[in-house]
Amino acid sequence: MDSPLTPRSNDLGLTAASKANTPIENQDAKSFFAQLAGFWVTFITMFKKVNTVEYPEVKEPTAERFHGRHQLNRYDDGLEKCIGCELCAWACPADAILVEGESNTDEERFSPGERYGKVYQINYLRCVFCGLCIEACPTRALTMTNEYELADDSRAKLIFEKEDLLAPLKSGMLQPPHPMAPGKTHIDYYRGEITGGSNE
């Protein structure tokens, strides 16, 4: 009778465990010449292919979603996605992010909507590259690139400012501050309906 407690087959697939339970066959010390076989192993390993990756001549590509340097993204017309909400700073477990928001005015508009991130600093001496800030960002302004070559020689140089972190301007993007696309509101931006193009 098939009791629910007993497995259907006797073979539980525990090969490693069953191997561990078998008694050791030959408990005597190996013969002198068998012990010399170890020398052959090291000798022949000298001629095997080496596993070393010769950085920096050879750089192995990182994984697709590698946690590298942060990047502040822009919309297609150049306005920044960051709204200065400081959620990333609150999410950071290492207290590495400093954000100060500022209101957008009609003359000086850096992002769609009311506010933008005026001061945005990430201290890479504190950042542990956990990615919680990326998970916290509501506008996908903050993402992580695959860049890991961040080493530098002074503490000051490793505090990245907003201009270090902003994504570069692609073709068709206009450097902020500039007004939103004519006739569009911030909701259109959030919906992704702005596809770039030249704006005044």
Partner: peptide
């Protein structure tokens, strides 16, 4: 170098 090759890695280069 030799000990490194025996351990399947490069030595100082």
């Amino acid at each position: 170098r030799i000990v490194a090759r025996m351990q399947q890695r490069l030595g100082p280069n």
